[in-house]
Simulated scan of single mutants.
Amino acid sequence: MRAIWKGAVSFGLVNVPVRLFSATQEHDIRFHQVHREDGGRIRMKRVCSACGEEVAWDQLAKGYEAEDGRLVVLTDEDFEQLPLATGREIDVVEFVPTGQVDPMLFGKSYYLEPDARAAKPYALLREALAATDRVAVVKVALRQRESLAVLRVLDKVIMMQTLLWPDEIRAADFPILEEDVELRPQELRMAASLVDSMAADFEPEEFEDDYQQALVKLVEAKLEGAEPAPVEAGEESATEVVDLLSALQASVDRAKASRGEKPEKKAPVKKAAPAKKTAKKAPAKKTAKKTPARKTA
């Protein structure tokens, strides 16, 4: 890895010289825009909309357009005059409990490597954070912009994770959530049972990017001039829940089956006893026709 920033962590009167390394990398395949007919690369030209001429890199500047249409142009010299109080330092502002930082605020992650002469103060800061179960809230200037970040411990390394500023978080405004929803006790019990049946320890190594793997195979097949293998379609998820309780029960059974467990035997539902069929009355026996009484003389 190559360091992207050099500076020092400053807390109190202690300075810890460190180097900053990006802790993550994307595994997406990068594509170029090409001409479908001959595969030629498509080049984008920087053309001025006012004069129609192509503009060189050294002639570019940053412009901001106000709501009323006015435009102000800022040059590199303008940006250099802006104050960056943190300079080349990671300035510790305060130490806060780990659970108080909402994960929604987290941005990019970095590793901090101590300088050869700073191993002891680095270890001291690391052990202090771990012992107190706190993170350090810091300010740092990265790419000519001041950022808010936290320092936290991961195994033996101190990580820095940039944070979004509070005004960059949107509020969740959904009127439907204000409506009262009636939940039956059996539905709550079944939902809790589903959670228990799918409970596990998070092991990120167990998960794979199926789309990325299929894309790599597709590209490799194209490079070899072979026909790509057909991709198996995944199971379609239900789009409509007719009976929530039945759907929860089916979900629990499927989760247990995926773990090799037998689904619980469902208690037989007592059905109303069908009405007793009345015996069909036997057809009345036809009585023999009475012979007419003989008339007496």
Results as ranks from 00 to 15, higher is better:
I4V: 12
G7V: 01
L13R: 01
N15F: 03
V16G: 00
P17N: 02
F21V: 00
S22R: 01
S22E: 00
E26M: 00
R30V: 07
H32R: 12
V34N: 13
D38W: 04
M44F: 15
A50S: 14
G52L: 04
V55F: 07
D58G: 10
K62N: 03
G63M: 03
A66F: 12
A66D: 08
E67Y: 08
R70V: 13
L74D: 09
F79T: 09
Q81E: 15
L82G: 10
A85G: 09
A85S: 11
G87Q: 12
R88G: 11
F95P: 02
V96Q: 04
P103Q: 09
K108S: 04
Y111H: 05
Y111C: 02
E113A: 10
A119S: 15
R126D: 02
R126L: 06
A128N: 02
L129T: 01
A131Q: 05
T132P: 00
R134K: 10
Q144E: 13
E146W: 05
E146I: 12
D155A: 14
K156P: 03
I158F: 03
M159Q: 08
M160T: 01
L164R: 14
P166V: 10
D167W: 04
E168K: 04
I169E: 06
R170V: 11
E178T: 11
E179S: 15
D180L: 15
V181D: 05
E182D: 14
P185I: 03
Q186A: 14
E187S: 04
A192Q: 12
D196Y: 08
A199F: 06
A200F: 11
D201A: 15
F207W: 12
E208T: 09
Q212E: 08
Q213I: 09
K222N: 02
A233C: 05
A233S: 10
D243R: 06
L248V: 06
Q249I: 10
S251V: 01
V252K: 02
D253W: 00
R259P: 02
K266E: 13
V269G: 08
K271S: 12
P274E: 15
K276Q: 10
K277L: 11
K281G: 05
A282P: 06
A284H: 07
K289V: 13
P292C: 09
P292Q: 15
R294W: 09
K295E: 06
